[in-house]
Amino acid sequence: MIPTPAPTELPPGPADRYLSGLRVGVTAVAGTLLLTMSMLRNVRSYHPVWFQAVAWATFAVIVLIGVVRVARHRPWGATWPLAVAAVLAASVLSMAGLPAGSATTAADWSTGVVGWVGLVVLFDRPLVVFVAFLIVHEAMVVSDVLITRPGDADALLNALSGAIGTLGYPLAAAIAATALAGAARTVERSWRESELLRTREAIASGLHSGRRRRFAALDQGVLPQLRALRDGSADPTDPRVRRACSIEAARLRRLFAESEDAPDPLLHVVRHCVDVAERRNVVVELQVSGTWPDPPEEIRRALTDGLLLVVSTAASRVRVTLVGTDGCVTLGAVGDDVELPADGWTPTEDVAMDTIREGNVTWIQARWSMS
């Protein structure tokens, strides 16, 4: 039977590819802002300078980790709280090294970077988490202004108005990404549903074709034999009729085995064929060795045609060997008093058939190679 694939077996959808592109864009913006190195223009005013160097290095490490995760298509996972804490700590360190009253001025280079670096970390988190991050950071900036320049209303208004650019742009990007990601996921759901529908239709078509082939096999062998028995044109006491019925019964069992799901379809069919002889109280010896590829259904039938003849007509003993080597499988059967078909074997291009008879012992071998 053909298994129905689970939804997880489908390839990555458009939402995954689209969100990957957005992550690349956000990470590129954050990296570009860091590379501008705007703090170098005011390096002489920082006390101490290493506060700014450590803050910049922290941001750079976060962005580099983001680049690696984007390249490997891996989200931050459970490490995102630590990364957010590192970003906020670096921001505090940078503000601590600013000259008095320099918050939100040109010397405060980190305020314009924090939002984008935070978005690199929180891209896969809900929008409310990123908004909370921006609120916390803005509260830190306002607190710094109130502490370093108490009573300066102009400085406070400047800090609030500056937040429109420093925090508003990454927030707008996050809102747009959330909205567009929702639309992409809707498209992806429709795409996956259509893919599953097409897969199910293909499976149903394959199952229907398989049933038609099996019914055609019944119409060629079993049904004519049953009609002959029903209308009396075949005598059940005739040894030739009994032999033909035994062969068709074996083919019917093979047909049932072909419709079952098994890890090794060829070995599964062979075991069902061997069971035919055992039900006739014939001593059967089955030897299996090696490995082999899974042959198509038509090849399996051609390989087991000779085996069916042996197990259904042998008088007392049957020996079956199934050997696989280097992309080739050989199936042999030896039995006593086996009656060979009068018209020989139906020629098969891909399966070679050999028959040897010595006295009352008949040996039939079928061989198939992938090449």
Rank of each mutant, 00 (worst) to 15 (best):
residue 171 L to D: 03
residue 202 A to P: 11
residue 206 G to Y: 11
residue 153 A to E: 15
residue 213 R to T: 00
residue 217 A to V: 05
residue 132 A to T: 03
residue 224 P to L: 14
residue 194 S to P: 04
residue 208 H to K: 14
residue 145 V to P: 02
residue 221 G to H: 13
residue 165 G to M: 07
residue 107 A to D: 10
residue 119 L to R: 11
residue 150 P to Y: 08
residue 204 A to E: 15
residue 152 D to F: 07
residue 139 A to C: 08
residue 207 L to I: 10
residue 214 R to N: 02
residue 174 A to E: 03
residue 115 G to W: 11
residue 191 W to A: 02
residue 110 S to Y: 05
residue 151 G to E: 13
residue 104 T to P: 05
residue 159 A to N: 01
residue 113 V to D: 04
residue 161 S to L: 11
residue 201 E to W: 15
residue 128 V to Y: 10
residue 117 V to C: 01
residue 134 L to G: 01
residue 152 D to H: 11
residue 192 R to W: 10
residue 128 V to K: 09
residue 197 L to G: 12
residue 137 H to N: 07
residue 195 E to N: 05
residue 209 S to M: 09
residue 125 R to K: 14
residue 220 Q to Y: 02
residue 141 V to S: 05
residue 213 R to D: 04
residue 211 R to H: 03
residue 133 F to E: 00
residue 213 R to A: 06
residue 109 W to K: 01
residue 181 A to Q: 06
residue 170 P to A: 00
residue 206 G to A: 07
residue 206 G to M: 06
residue 123 F to V: 05
residue 216 A to V: 02
residue 105 T to C: 08
residue 190 S to H: 15
residue 166 T to W: 14
residue 125 R to N: 09
residue 155 A to Y: 14
residue 155 A to R: 11
residue 146 L to E: 09
residue 202 A to Y: 13
residue 215 F to I: 14
residue 155 A to L: 10
residue 152 D to M: 04
residue 199 T to M: 12
residue 151 G to L: 12
residue 212 R to I: 13
residue 210 G to W: 09
residue 189 R to H: 05
residue 141 V to G: 02
residue 172 A to P: 06
residue 103 A to G: 01
residue 188 E to N: 00
residue 168 G to N: 07
residue 224 P to C: 07
residue 111 T to K: 03
residue 151 G to I: 01
residue 134 L to E: 00
residue 198 R to P: 13
residue 135 I to R: 01
residue 172 A to C: 12
residue 146 L to K: 09
residue 162 G to H: 07
residue 124 D to I: 08
residue 210 G to S: 10
residue 207 L to A: 07
residue 116 W to F: 04
residue 204 A to N: 13
residue 144 D to E: 04
residue 115 G to L: 12
residue 206 G to L: 03
residue 173 A to R: 11
residue 212 R to A: 01
residue 135 I to L: 10
residue 104 T to R: 11
residue 154 D to A: 04
residue 123 F to Q: 07
residue 118 G to L: 00
residue 175 I to M: 14
residue 212 R to C: 08
residue 181 A to F: 00
residue 113 V to H: 07
residue 149 R to N: 09
residue 201 E to F: 10
residue 114 V to F: 03
residue 153 A to Y: 15
residue 213 R to H: 14
residue 222 V to M: 13
residue 186 T to C: 09
residue 105 T to D: 12
residue 121 V to C: 06
residue 211 R to E: 03
residue 192 R to H: 06
residue 170 P to D: 04
residue 187 V to D: 03
residue 220 Q to D: 08
residue 146 L to N: 03
residue 142 V to Q: 09
residue 126 P to R: 04
residue 222 V to T: 14
residue 215 F to S: 00
residue 161 S to Y: 12
residue 129 V to W: 01
residue 153 A to M: 15
residue 152 D to K: 12
residue 223 L to T: 11
residue 128 V to D: 07
residue 134 L to P: 09
residue 181 A to H: 08
residue 159 A to I: 13
residue 128 V to W: 13
residue 137 H to E: 06
residue 147 I to G: 04
